[in-house]
Computed example of a mutant assay.
Amino acid sequence: MTLISTTPMLRKAKKNKHGIVAFNVHCFDSIFWVLEAAAELKSPVILQTTVGTVQNLGAKNIVEAAKTAAESYNIPTGLHLDHCTDFDVIKEAIRAGYTSVMIDASMHPFEENVKRTKEVMELAKSLGVNVEAELGKVGGVEDDIVVAEEDAQKAVPEECKLFIEQTGVPTLAPAIGTAHGIYKGEPDIDFDRIAKIAEIVDVPLVLHGGSAVPEADVRRCVSLGMAKVNVSTELKNAYSEAIRKHFEMDPDSLDPRAYLQKAKEAAKEMAKSKIRMVGSEGKVVPSFV
């Protein structure tokens, strides 16, 4: 199986009332252990990269690694460029073979957000590439995009409906109270707002800032219409903490095969817990293959 567009994948998830996790991957080996975790649970999955990861690894290299992994594990796999503000980087990703891109123009006024999203839609739609956009502002840090807590703004349901009508965007990430990174306190998720948005729009919704959100809250978000759940920080932390623990326990054990295997297993378990959380375990069926 090769990489597929996330549009039908997320529509199917929305229809069947489960989520699909989009895992941020930061190195080539993470692409493989995320898909290994998904394959073991028979779950569709989305790999996603930040602009920084694209600049570090190269869009073409990421696509080739993702294609190889998808073919090896035979799992429905999308490849998504997350939180991109640069049209040229979006073009680069699409040309390289990404199956989904996010144009983040949420820091601009509504009309400018519509304009920039439409430009990406014109490029991506004919190629079958999914487009994700954001309304409101999700707080926290995502790559080089920093939104202070006091500047975070929740999406307005009626604007979400109008935005989709004007852009035709097939997936929407409305700000509903979550934040990127690990929370200092309890997340302030506006479930009523999610329900209202889902009631008046017909596209799959995306939950940004899925790391460290209590499982019950994520499940409730999914039940209300959030079909894509983004996870980055927890996965990265599990991987890094395993390496740190390895050297704390045995500082002279310098063989990368030893500490990277421990990191992989820790991250895989974290990935599996998130897949189970959104209810996508066992959702790979013949129609997907």
Rank of each mutant, 00 (worst) to 15 (best):
E112A: 00
E112F: 02
E112N: 05
N113V: 00
N113Q: 03
V114Q: 07
K115A: 11
T117C: 08
T117N: 02
K118R: 14
K118M: 09
E119K: 14
M121C: 13
M121S: 10
E122V: 05
L123P: 05
A124W: 09
A124M: 13
K125L: 00
K125I: 00
V129I: 15
V129L: 08
A133S: 14
E134I: 11
E134D: 06
L135Y: 00
L135V: 00
G136C: 08
V138K: 11
V138Y: 07
V141T: 14
V141C: 09
V141H: 13
D144Q: 15
D144M: 06
I145V: 13
I145E: 09
I145N: 13
I145L: 15
V146R: 07
V146L: 11
V146T: 07
V146E: 14
A148D: 06
A148P: 02
E149N: 13
E149W: 00
E149S: 06
E150H: 15
A152Q: 12
Q153G: 00
K154G: 06
V156H: 11
P157R: 01
E158R: 11
E158W: 01
C160L: 08
K161R: 13
K161N: 03
I164T: 09
I164S: 05
E165G: 03
Q166P: 04
T167A: 06
V169I: 04
P170A: 01
T171M: 10
L172C: 01
L172K: 01
A173K: 13
A173D: 06
A175E: 03
I176P: 01
I176Y: 05
G177Y: 08
T178R: 08
T178H: 05
I182P: 01
G185S: 10
G185Q: 12
E186N: 15
E186F: 07
D188C: 04
I189M: 09
D190L: 03
D190G: 02
A195G: 06
I197R: 05
A198V: 04
A198E: 08
A198P: 02
E199S: 14
E199F: 00
I200Y: 02
I200D: 04
V201A: 03
P204T: 03
P204R: 12
P204I: 04
L205E: 02
L205M: 13
V206A: 06
V206N: 04
L207C: 02
H208A: 06
G209P: 07
G209A: 10
A212V: 02
A212D: 15
V213A: 07
V213S: 07
P214Y: 06
P214H: 12
E215A: 15
A216I: 12
D217P: 08
D217H: 10
V218G: 01
V218S: 11
V222M: 10
S223F: 00
L224T: 07
A227G: 02
A227N: 04
N230I: 04
S232P: 13
T233Q: 11
T233P: 03
T233R: 08
E234G: 09
L235R: 12
K236V: 07
K236H: 14
K236S: 06
N237K: 14
N237Q: 12
Y239E: 05
Y239C: 07
Y239K: 01
S240W: 05
S240H: 02
E241Q: 15
I243E: 04
K245M: 02
H246D: 01
H246A: 00
F247P: 10
F247R: 04
F247D: 09
E248G: 12
